[in-house]
């Protein structure tokens, strides 16, 4: 059988919120390592990849590798039934037709049990090649969310330009142009609230704000976000989640005419 008990159940709610608007259905792959998911949005423009390591659960039991084919909207609805301080357990058999979510209140006075039908999802797995990035930008996740929100008022896409002076986000539309420049706060300092840039080569790429805004749904999961950019390659947007794993998003650049 498979059983994974997450004491900080709110994390599962937050992971769900971070993917449900992007991905319609996906396989949650459960192995001894943990729970992972990789899925593209329906237009194949962006990809989400997440890992919840087994040591983040207490206990974690996976007798046989299984894939739980899940409709995200249905799971998100069930996750909304869990309170923020609930302990969440995910449970299924070795050849499952259903998955069970159990929500326990902290004092165990209330136990909710939701069983959900699984789907047979034929998903293709993509291998993500190791990339030498031109620039790796770390910044407060809330700052990146704010930038995406503000520039969405100006245009549909954002140009990210990174050089020795810092990083600039700019958008243009019918009403005009918006530019937001961030300087490094300190050299190689990745403390919360800091902007840090590892620069190999100056780089400038344009991305759809619609998708970056979807990615910022992961903001409640982490204090820091890392943007890894490289000329003519997809950007990797990573939120590392303390003690359990990560969620990463990839988005292909817009092709300059």
């Amino acid at each position: 059988m498979f059983e994974a008990r997450l004491v900080q159940g709110s994390l599962m709610k937050k992971f769900m919120e971070a993917i449900k608007d992007l991905v319609k259905e996906a396989n949650w792959d459960c192995t001894g390592t943990g729970i992972s998911l990789q899925a593209m949005d329906t237009s194949h423009v962006s990809l989400v990849s997440l890992l919840l390591r087994s040591d983040g659960f207490d206990p974690y039991r996976c007798d046989r590798n299984i894939s739980l084919g899940i409709n995200m909207e249905s799971m998100a609805k069930i996750m909304k039934c869990a309170s923020n301080d609930d302990v969440i357990t995910i449970r299924s058999e070795d050849h499952p037709d259903n998955v069970t979510f159990v929500f326990e209140s902290p004092n165990q006075e209330k136990v909710c049990d939701y069983e959900m039908k699984l789907m047979d999802i034929d998903s293709e797995h993509l291998g993500i090649p190791d990339t030498e990035y031109d620039a790796i930008i770390s910044m407060p996740a809330s700052e990146f969310q704010r930038i995406c929100r503000d520039l969405s008022n100006i245009g549909d896409s954002v140009k990210i330009t990174c050089n020795k002076d810092g990083v600039q986000f700019s958008a243009q539309g019918d009403t005009g142009i918006g530019k937001i420049a961030l300087k490094q706060n300190a050299v190689i300092d990745k403390e919360d609230g800091q902007v840090s840039i590892e620069l190999n080569d100056p780089v400038s790429l344009t991305f759809a704000l619609r998708y970056l805004t979807f990615f910022t749904k992961a903001t409640p999961l982490a204090s820091t976000v890392t943007l890894s950019v490289s000329a003519k390659n997809p950007v990797a947007v990573e939120y590392r989640v303390d003690d359990i794993g990560y969620i990463r998003y990839y988005l292909a650049p817009k092709i300059e005419e």
Binding site: M40, S43, H44, V45, S46, L47, E124, H125, L126, G127, I128, P129, D156, S157, T206, A208, N233, P234, Y250, L251, A252, P253, K254, I255, E256, E257
Partner: peptide, 14 residues
């Protein structure tokens, strides 16, 4: 506006 590229061509199908 520039065209949006699909991801498939960057990543390898396993």
């Amino acid at each position: 506006l520039p065209e949006q590229d699909r991801l498939d061509q960057y990543f390898i199908k396993c």
